[in-house]
Amino acid sequence: MAVETTENTNAAKSFLLPLVVVVALVALWTAVWASGAFHESALPSPIAVMRGFGEELKSGRLINDLITSLFRVSCGFGLAAALGIPLGLWLGQKLSARIAFLPIINFFRNLSPLAWIPFAILWFGVGDASAIFLIFLSAFFPVILATMAAVANIPTVYFRVAQNYGINGLERLTQVTLPAILPQIITTLRVTAGLSWLVVVAAEMIAGRDGLGFAVMDSRNGLRTDLLVVEMIVIGLIGVALDRLLVQLTKIQSVRWGYER
């Protein structure tokens, strides 16, 4: 019973305390706005933002932009994972390939995908393909590097055990190598999904005609600071939601060992 009570208190706490902080921040915002320190066109009031939110919902534009951005991130990020994980597996197992490719992968990993925007527009025009390309670049190299490192660091013991028990070839890949790196892969996917979500906004601001990034740019051009704040809130919340979604993967029983040791 005692334990249950503490758990309830903790659940209440973990909901109430953050809420207090949010309310305080909105109050601060309102106070600054009311003080007149900022010009009306530089800082919208919370009320104006609420009205803007309603307006955006009614017009359906916000939902459309949201879906567009999510679609692009899913494609770019999915492609990066689908190609990056196998490549990382290969590089992790082949020392000479690793020596050959590591410098160039490191180079691209440290080159901001935003620097590719001009080429993205030249090659793919303005729209989905450009954004997907840029998101792909943001996730592809980190995924390769992390997978590679994870594979290279699998304890030799596991492979010896596999040999003792007759696990060879493809079975060894699916029953030893993959499960051994899965916890690290999930962590990497969480980090790179966050990165992709950051990049999609920037990509759409310059190389888009729709999507949340474009909406931000459009609101700026129309001097609609109220809508700007609406979009910022949505972008932030979706980023958090994406991470919460991927965190679910860490709850799979057979990967718990990677987080509890």
């Binding site: 013991v157 055990v161 990677g258």
Partner: peptide
């Protein structure tokens, strides 16, 4: 048939106790 037992961490951490033991019964 040779089988080795290690100092520690010779079990596959992603498999349950039963699944680990069943590795020895794959035949």
């Amino acid at each position: 048939q040779v089988r080795m037992v290690y100092q520690q961490d010779g079990l596959f951490p992603w498999l349950t106790v039963a699944e680990n033991i069943a590795l020895g019964l794959r035949h």
